[in-house]
């Protein structure tokens, strides 16, 4: 594999790390979800970069399109859950939720 691939993978790893840190430390439900979004940016960067490095860019694009479609579905579901939670508790604070830890 060539070195450009490693460069992109290094940046993708940074993005995934930032997202995971957000998931572990933040308390706002929407903020947690922004963390998930950052992780998925890292993943789609890694996919397209892999295709680029392997000269397989068309397949990589097809995969990334599917990935983004899935991401949209997950985002819509998650935001619907967040809005419903807010209707119950009037708050977005994770500490106000009885069971939720982590």
């Amino acid at each position: 594999m060539n070195n450009t691939w490693l460069l992109y993978i290094a940046f993708a790893a940074v993005l995934v790390f930032v997202g995971l840190y957000c998931l572990l430390s933040m308390r706002n439900l929407i903020k947690l979800f922004i963390g998930i979004e950052v992780i998925s940016k890292g993943i789609s960067l890694a996919f397209v970069a892999t295709g680029f490095a392997k000269k397989n860019i068309l397949v990589a694009q097809a995969l990334a399109v599917t990935f983004i479609v899935i991401e949209v579905s997950v985002v819509a579901t998650a935001l619907a859950i967040i809005i419903n939670t807010y209707r119950h508790t009037r708050s977005l604070d994770i500490r106000k939720l009885a069971k939720l830890k982590g």
């Binding site: 308390r27 706002n28 929407i30 985002v75 809005i83 807010y86 508790t89 708050s91 977005l92």
Partner: peptide, 23 residues
């Protein structure tokens, strides 16, 4: 585009409880 719109809609709908003190 789309996901940002969804996020901003959610933020607007949950405005009053939005101030969560992060540690």
């Amino acid at each position: 585009g789309l996901i940002t719109v969804l996020f901003i809609t959610t933020i607007a709908l949950t405005k009053t409880g939005g101030d969560v003190r992060e540690s």
